[in-house]
Write a protein that binds this DNA or RNA. Structure first.
Lengths: 242, 242
DNA sequence: AAGTGGTCTAGACCACTAT
DNA sequence: TAGTGGTCTAGACCACTTC
């Protein structure tokens, strides 16, 4: 059945993905674009948009003049760094049954680093939410999100364990558009180590990032810490012309 | 002047980028797509493709119904992780004048890890190239690339200091298409520390990656080490549907 | 030479934002 | 309500791979 929303392109994309997972394409060869267009009753442009997204995700690859093929190697990648939006989802993708625990949830004066990241003044306040993501009883990810207090539209804020992008929509009426993330290696300090259930000085990865909303305004300053023994990040790097 | 190659889209992209850097757009507002199409004498599709690429790179952002705008924050990002193709380029983008030193260049029996990454047998051989990238006399990046010996088409291999993707084109007739990279925090061992000019145990970042050619075959296994005090990586993370 | 993906056009209509 | 970006169509021609 054809409907708008999700877009035709996304429906086509989902359809092809399903075919791939059901092994419907022999030899990993995906039908020509013209054939797909005719079979699915959409234009070739729509097909190409869908294939373009799948290629970008690493699910397929295309070779001009030759064809379009399933990318077996690309399909193995569990969670691609560029696409991470929720750590619960990341842990699920790794086959875990994640739990979330809110450690801190309070409004505090902003510190210097956060003030700069969120373009605030020294006297302003931020809501600080610290969460830990666990697999069973084992902590895997520790996050600290800081949201300008002025953005909080609602007094009542239950469901503090929402993913931050949902939290921002629900309580701040802001839609998160993208993050700029810096990747930093760390040796966990005593506090971090305790919260992550490892020895002080254990090696790990951290992200320092700023999330921007659809108006391109910074709305959240996040720092995240990962147990390298339980979670490894991958990404696909491509050449982008000029 | 209109020519093919580079594509119209890339020409449009370059043009808009230039306008941005020359501050030609008041208030950071980029003209409507229809206007751009008419002014540049191309179709709106071509304009949209170019804007789409610029948006993906973080140079602009778009808001449906409102317009297209310059992304000042995005333009500050020096080298985006997803787009890294040459460490010389990365260092240049950071304002350094990079030098490259080839430390090792020899054909050796493949080790287990590389054999698995490149789908080789235990008895096969690989060309191992170890390079260090310096700013002046200061090492910043240490890389180790391994290429299957069977791919080497030419006996004479001068210019060992070529970026690996150019090396593969020149001596193996393979075009690098993308890398799958794993990001790992490390404490440098004695050997790495010496080559990077830091104390043993210093914290740093490393990439473990496999490069694939246009036939989606693994052609290079690379490990890279970075001095966190001199080089930080950033990337843009976005939500991708489904 | 046949078949495939890559680029480009011209135009229609929709969804959303601003005023 | 006017103007903007988002989606989609139908079709043309080009570049490349394969046989």
């Amino acid at each position: 059945m054809i409907t708008r929303n999700p877009s035709l392109t996304d429906q086509v994309k989902a359809h092809i993905k399903e075919q791939i997972f059901n092994d419907e394409y022999e030899d990993g060869r995906i039908p020509p674009e013209a054939t797909l267009a005719e079979d699915l009753g959409v234009s070739r442009t729509t097909i190409r948009d869908a294939l373009g997204k799948l290629e970008h995700e690493g699910a397929i690859y295309r070779k001009q003049g030759a064809g379009t093929f399933v990318n077996e190697a690309g399909l193995q990648i569990k969670s691609r760094l560029e696409e991470i939006w929720s750590y619960e989802q990341v842990l699920q993708d790794h086959g875990y049954k994640p739990a979330v625990k809110v450690l801190t949830d309070e409004i505090l004066p902003v510190n210097e680093e956060t003030a700069e990241a969120l373009e605030l003044d020294g006297g302003d306040e931020v809501l600080v939410i610290e969460k830990v993501f666990l697999e069973g009883a084992t902590p895997v990810v520790l996050t600290r999100n800081r949201i300008p207090a002025t953005l909080l539209a609602v007094k009542e804020r239950r469901r503090k364990n929402l993913p931050i992008y949902e939290y921002l929509e629900e309580y701040c009426d802001r839609r998160l558009s993208y993050y700029v993330s810096e990747i930093v290696p760390v040796a966990f300090d005593a506090d971090q180590a305790r919260k992550l259930g490892v020895k002080k000085g254990t090696l790990g990865l951290s992200f320092i990032e700023v999330g921007f909303d659809t108006n391109n305004e910074p709305v959240v300053h996040a720092t995240s810490y990962f147990r390298d023994d339980l979670l490894r990040f991958r990404l696909i790097r491509r050449k982008t012309g000029a």
